[in-house]
Amino acid sequence: MRRGPHPALAALTVLVFLFLLGPLVIIIGASLSDTSFLTFPPRGLTLDWYQNVFEISAFRRTMVTSFTLATFGTLFSLLLGIPAAYALARYRVQLPRFLANVYVLPVLIPEIVLGFSLMKSVAIGAGVPVMASLLIGHALLVLPYCVRVVGASLNGFDFSVEEAAVSLGCPRWRAFFTVVLPNIKAGVIAAFILAFITSLNDVSVSIFLTGPGVSTLPIQLLAHMEQFFDPTIASVSVLLMGVTVAVMAVIERTLGLTFLTK
């Protein structure tokens, strides 16, 4: 017979999950308040603050920047990361073993150190424009996700299928696109979406690289918070939580959320 957890342990777990979700519920409540300051529970209900988000040009602008940056930074990273993951899985013998670790270096180096170093050497040292520096920074930031998640689905792929296509006369590049890629589609989509949300939420790398006129949404939020403390910030936060929900739905469809516990 299976017994449930000890009542004290179960109660503790309930408290932990209340602690995890409570603050997010408070943000949702605060975003609906018709007061001009942040408060919870909301006094009267209004959606005005959501409208206000789109009336503030800095939020509109940085939202576009952030989504563009997350999309193209991730695509760039996948463009380099998929071949690398493929090479690591397919040519295990030909490549040195440490190579896999080199690709996950961006996880080991603190993000804030990466941001500072990129600013010093790339943005200022080499005079690379703001948007291009951000793109390099974000591509690096998400490269470990791209290589690892795509690699995980490649490890489950039987390369003899690809060999069969090649030995029947299919060119290698074509075998990759028609045989390998469809089989790792779920991994590629999951890698994209995980990388996308990481890039969208990034502060530590972006804070050094945003320049005059170009900023990202999280950096703009930080700046806004220092001057105003009104429910607009809560509304932006709720909109970002909406993105999180969408991201989770995609992960659940592709790899399943339990993938994140591995």
């Binding site: 997010l24 919870f40 939420n201 918070m225 970002l240 994140l260």
Partner: peptide, 17 residues
């Protein structure tokens, strides 16, 4: 997973409130 994938600015902001 939900809080994990929600940004650090949003999650820190909650504690300001």
């Amino acid at each position: 997973v939900f809080p994990l994938l929600t940004g650090v600015v949003v999650r820190s902001f909650a504690w300001l409130v």
